[in-house]
Amino acid sequence: MKRTLPFVVPTALLLALPLLRIDARDYVLQVLTLLFLNIVLAQSYDMVGGTMGYINLGHIAFFGLGAYALGILYNAGVPFVPAVALAVLAVMAFAALISYPFFRLRGAYFALAAFGLVKLMEYVTINLNWLTGGSNGLKIDPANRTVPMYLVSLAVVVIVLLASWVISRSRLGLAMKSIREDEEVARDFGVPTRLVKTQALVVSSIFPAVMGAFYTWYINFIDPGQVFGLKIALTPVAMAMLGGSGLVIGPVVGAIVLYMAEEVIWTQFDELHGAMLGGVIVVVGLFMPGGLMRLRPLDALLGRLGWREDDR
């Protein structure tokens, strides 16, 4: 029980935050909402990217697709909750559909094809303007949904963390790790690699899909460049690697650290934000191959907490 305390206490506090009666409450909620969005994207990316070792640079495609599916369904008159459910199901179906052809690719080919998919989705969304509104964007009835969005994002963060934890201890998780270490050997030992890869991709697609759907609801007005953008595609990957790709705790830590670093940089410096962010990313790549949580002191802390994962 004690092991979960460091999760339960902050969650309870965060849950109570909307009750706070200060002027800046909504600003704080919005800052945290964006943080939560990043955590969810990084954590769910890492299911495939870290645990299974397939660097999925196209993870954001699920987010964008979820965002557009919700917008289209909602504007077509589907009530909100069923619309979210349908949007997520559509994304899961899409993930299942692409998993077979995409997982025939390995290594860099997989990463780049997935990246190309994001660009392809952006273009197709622009071109199908009868459906998506094209470059005019897609708008749903406007409203300020700061508080509900905050609560939803918090809930999704909790769920995605639980899901990562459950997966890392499950048969599926073990199979995913075996694929990362050596796919041929795993197959020879009877791991149904194709099925495992599909399952992993479908599970990892659920979370960005949910966040995408709610993102449309929150921002009210989306366009293809926004939801299929390069920056939003690459930062979650960098976050996961910063924290420690392949560890349950890694992406969430990476997301918090990088997002906070970004916040401080934006607010404290007038110039060269991008360069500073780039500097952080270079340092991570150069000096922390395993990410922050595999650094010795933090790793030792995890060990004492009984959280260390025997992952490599």
Binding site: A238, A275, G285
Partner: peptide, 20 residues
């Protein structure tokens, strides 16, 4: 696969720095 990932990060970071 760690090298592929690290190199992707490093070159991405350099890209951001050069651009900015």
């Amino acid at each position: 696969h760690v090298r592929l990932a690290s190199a992707t990060l490093v070159t991405l970071g350099v890209a951001l720095i050069v651009e900015d």
